[in-house]
Design a protein around this nucleic acid. Sequence first.
DNA 1: TCCTGTCGAGCGAAAGTAACAGGAAATCTA
DNA 2: TAGATTTCCTGTTACTTTCGCTCGACAGGA
Lengths: 202, 202
Amino acid sequence: MMKKNLSKQKVIHAASTLFFQKGFHGTSVRDIAEKAKVNVSSVSYYFNGKQGLLEYAVTAYYEEYLEKVEECLKVTENQSAIERLNKLIFTIIQYKQSKLQLTCFIQRELTLDSIFVREMTVTYLAKENYYIRSTFFSALEGKKLPGDQKDYLLLQLKGMLITPYILHNEWKDRVIGEYSREVFVKKYVATIQKWLKFIVGI
Amino acid sequence: MMKKNLSKQKVIHAASTLFFQKGFHGTSVRDIAEKAKVNVSSVSYYFNGKQGLLEYAVTAYYEEYLEKVEECLKVTENQSAIERLNKLIFTIIQYKQSKLQLTCFIQRELTLDSIFVREMTVTYLAKENYYIRSTFFSALEGKKLPGDQKDYLLLQLKGMLITPYILHNEWKDRVIGEYSREVFVKKYVATIQKWLKFIVGI
DNA sequence: TCCTGTCGAGCGAAAGTAACAGGAAATCTA
DNA sequence: TAGATTTCCTGTTACTTTCGCTCGACAGGA
């Protein structure tokens, strides 16, 4: 049938926007259905309910995310640790920017304390953390830093990777208007890399 | 009366914890009442409903926050710009750490797009942003940095001020266990200040 | 005919809130 | 000081709305 998945896509798109604006619990399936201009029961039909829709969206997001990260690490296998880290940072920021609303929403939702969040943590975030951590520590190799100092620097790095998607409210004027998304990615990544150069050069 | 405001305090405390764990929309007034061991209608009685409770908590949080920030800036009036900024950073992190759950919750809720958030933005966040921005730019005085570079550095700084309260899930084991809160504040602030020293020394 | 997708109606549960009664404490009055 | 009155707080109950979800009916292409 021609219109297969047409409603499904409309639901996903509407849900992304609404979850981003009002949060998961702040959005009703009727809101979604209305915005997507489909029937209420479509959500249950396609995703097994509201929770299923959430799981579908988040899972798809992280599957693709980790795919891109792993590909980046594979391609840069033979390069220097710092070069690898630089390209990893670029890959991550670029992906997040390409799915801006979903990134902001998921980032927010992950700060909650629920069964779902814990599941996502062990399934995806553990992997993500492993990739970033090991790549970063490789780049720090040889630097003699006191014990937990590295962990604080890692926290700093991870913070830089999420900051634009937490403080998006302050930056949306800029990112949408004066700057295009690509320009933002380029400039922001450059800012991180400048910090990185300082850190590994200690 | 002896037990005056006793229930009120219990409600605030319970709400802080639950909002932190499950979010504002994810928490019902019955949840709060049950945890606080008070009657359901107490929330309406003391705070004019659930929304009023939110407004009360957030307002009280930011009033005290800005008070501490302004006091810090006043005390350090005659010191160097970098010294001022260092102490401002310490003040901010210390306050946030002292109200950990509320900080995490408010930080999360502010990423939503609602009338309430916009009100808080113009009332408090604009001030906060002004203080941090002007202090930071004073410290950068004389450095010749291309146009928007300073804004990206400011974004980086502001990110560092919120990161621990976004990624608290990854750090709670550490902050609660091995390290006490004071140690975390000291060490994390030191990490930011090291970055700062690099930036202003460019 | 079956299968897939769409639609509206409606169910039970839970949400937020209002209404009211009871009672303890505080204040007033004689 | 004793009694009366007011004020403040708590508990019960019930109301209205909205929630997520299911169901049966219906349409059209395979």
